[in-house]
Design a protein around this nucleic acid. Structure first.
Lengths: 206, 206
DNA sequence: GTCACAATCCCACTTTTGTGGGGGTAGTGA
DNA sequence: TCACTACCCCCACAAAAGTGGGATTGTGAC
């Protein structure tokens, strides 16, 4: 935030959206889009080479779920403010993002003015969760299922369509072990079958 | 296409994207965005009340998969040109869209210029499939799995996380019948389990 | 140093899926 | 009429998933 200008990096794989967003943010006083990235990798690279004050980050990127990378990014760039820009209005996703340390959560079905408003608020040092997202959080006071490293790993493979046996082979673990992780995943995500597990995981983009 | 101006209706639930897209399309010669809609319902309503030459349609809308509605829309508005605007780069999705009678298929990771180019081409009477989408089609000459009404119905319920028994109850059919539909679905979608079925269905947004 | 918990493995048992057949009717188009 | 297909039902058996226990390490928090 040198001399009143907030330098912004946009990270989203939809160039179409990036184009439009860049224009409307640049029109706002005190905001300047200094770069764009299409993936987490590009985002990280840009951050290493350029000073950025605020990062607008899409949740789903070609190289993974960006929320998983938020802690890593904040560790390397502690003064950076991160605003998630998502089409997911899932309470658990929002909560996970907040827990990860983001400063804002905006929804893509907002119009440019609302987005600009949120970005300005965050640039100003506030925390800004879009009204719709906030409403969802209040309605659903469900706890966020906190998955362990292994559970996450197993879940990813389930979502790839692999069977228990195949996952065991892939991770070089015993069938029973995977059987157990799946049991825990079912409990944590409140799923009653493998198919249901895939549904929950896909919906909540865990 | 009265007097050289192509009247466009934008249908996408991401207002952010709509905002940007509207601006860049309006900047192009001969194109005018005459309306926007956030759902299939709104889209249909607008079409009934206003003359539109070209419809830019997102695949996933809150009230369903828009490709399923393309035939219906074309039936009611036969001279309308429909261009799909998708983030899905799945060959089967593209092929389904083409079979449904669309005039163009554009990807959201293109930039505004590429989108404008595609829209202009379609407005001009051409068929325009984005280069990336086209490349995918050549690589994967797989046949599109054509599902029957019932299969689609069953698949939707599978994607909701229901078990065979639950689906049977919901549709008031025998367990064996659903068992059979699931068998066919597995074969058609090349899935090897219920979980896999959910994966395929979600990926291909069937 | 105890306590919680991730991570790993095991057994036994039930239920659900998956696979391989076998039927039938009704409608559609050649 | 014949072929084809959607739609509906059935049996039997094998394989996978789900449920209820059990156990041993190691690590990090308090």
């Amino acid at each position: 935030m040198t001399d009143n200008i907030t330098r912004i990096l946009l990270t989203d794989d939809h160039n179409l959206l990036v184009d439009g967003l860049k224009r409307s943010l640049n029109e706002a006083d005190g905001l300047k889009v200094v770069g764009t990235a299409n993936s987490i990798k590009e985002c990280m690279e840009f951050l290493s080479g350029h000073p950025v004050d605020l990062l607008l980050l899409d949740v789903q990127l070609p190289d993974g779920n960006s929320i998983d990378f938020v802690p890593k990014i904040l560790q390397a760039h502690s003064s950076l403010k991160i605003v998630i820009l998502s089409s997911f209005a899932e309470p658990t996703v929002i909560r996970r993002a907040i827990d990860a340390g983001i400063s804002g959560y905006l929804l893509k079905n907002s119009n440019s003015d609302e987005i600009t408003k949120g970005v300005l608020a965050v640039a100003d040092g506030e925390h800004y969760i879009s009204p719709e997202a906030n409403a969802l959080l209040k309605e659903a006071p469900k706890h966020v299922p906190s998955l362990t490293r292994r559970e996450r790993e197993v879940l990813h493979l389930v979502v790839e369509g692999l069977s228990t046996k195949e996952i065991a082979a892939r991770l070089d673990l015993s069938f029973d072990t995977i059987h157990d992780y799946l049991r825990n995943l079912r409990i944590k995500l409140d799923a009653k079958s493998m198919a249901d597990l895939v549904c929950r995981a896909k919906d909540q983009c865990l």
